[in-house]
Nucleic acid binder design. Sequence first.
DNA 1: CAGTGGTCTAGACCACTGA
DNA 2: CAGTGGTCTAGACCACTGT
Lengths: 229, 229
Amino acid sequence: MPATYREIKADILGKIHKGVLAPGSLMPNEVDLARSYGCARATVNRAMRELADDGIIERRRKAGTWVRPAPIRQARFVLSRVREEIENQGARYGYALVSRAVETASAPLRSRLALEPGGKVLHLICTHHADGTPYQLEDRWINLAMNPAAAQADFAATGPTEWLTAAVPFSDVEISLQAVRADAATAQHLGCLAGDALLQTERSTWWEGRAVAFVQLTHRPGHRMTTRC
Amino acid sequence: MPATYREIKADILGKIHKGVLAPGSLMPNEVDLARSYGCARATVNRAMRELADDGIIERRRKAGTWVRPAPIRQARFVLSRVREEIENQGARYGYALVSRAVETASAPLRSRLALEPGGKVLHLICTHHADGTPYQLEDRWINLAMNPAAAQADFAATGPTEWLTAAVPFSDVEISLQAVRADAATAQHLGCLAGDALLQTERSTWWEGRAVAFVQLTHRPGHRMTTRC
DNA sequence: CAGTGGTCTAGACCACTGA
DNA sequence: CAGTGGTCTAGACCACTGT
């Protein structure tokens, strides 16, 4: 008889997969499950809570717990920093600053970061290399109102990501993935052809409701993000 | 003084963001934290466990708990089924089967799904529409050794995803994202231009170590996957 | 109002692993 | 071997919400 929360979780998952617990059906409550598994309610609770976190079941107070008809499939992608990603592949990491300028935020950028008209941003373009070949193009805007020190920082040797994580706290992140066609400049930086399909990560970071920075990370052709669940 | 696991979690997160707890530094053990927060160790444990799950801290038995120097940023993308995705946007869902054939798995497909030479697969191509316009192209291979009933199923009215989730259990999923250029056929199905950059989701599903199915979901131009954390 | 899950406690034992 | 986190228990009270 299962007794640990892991065993209970596996047992319930097995019953769902084998159809013993039908999709959409109501499950026994925690007290009954604890009795039938011969364990404490807290143990059942932990197993059920994790199943709910995984989107397998749905729980509502007073109402009960159901097997989700179509489980919410969610994928967790690990977004490590470029440097680590490259070094983990056993390659030598390289960095180059392409351009650096203080700009007045354009209208689209302002609306994305909720900046006031006339808001100043530090605009950086840089490239990340693996064993000398282009790996990722970084197009970054830093909100100078939130990070005035960035205007003094020299990004010639160190990328903005490393500077920001050391210097600036943030609490909220919004991440977005899309496919884009390489324009001429991007193609040149990534050493590919204009028109190539590229995976692009966009990320805006916030602290106490105000925008810290926004970045577009354009990956080299063929880049994949993979996960298992 | 914080007393619930949520408050403790928020308090620790705040200290990390404000620099009170320096990146890379060793944290007090659970017993000491429980004393200083005036709560039971289990409460601290839950807060710390969630922080570890979120990649904020790292824990090792006997050694202790550290603030991760560079937090593992992980994004959770919800991968709902196309039908729900479309209906949640308030659009009318449409489905069309393009082709259906029993094939001998090609070498690349065999290696991807660990099939034996001569393994038979059901190859389906279909399209999903939102308010009549193409939304997603589905290219699916079902392992007939695992799902012989699929050969009898009629996919004219219902998509393979719906058939599979009702008929076949699976335990492991591997998901991969990439950008691809639309070839002529894809462009025609999605109503875009050949050469357009498209986001593509690949997904292979397994049950008890054997492949159930493999699918390529090619999204219409401009499609984004977004998440907040 | 009553039944469900959500959380906390105080204590215990265990598993792992660094010194 | 000793210190840390991992887990379980038995019991309690609470928050939410369907009826």
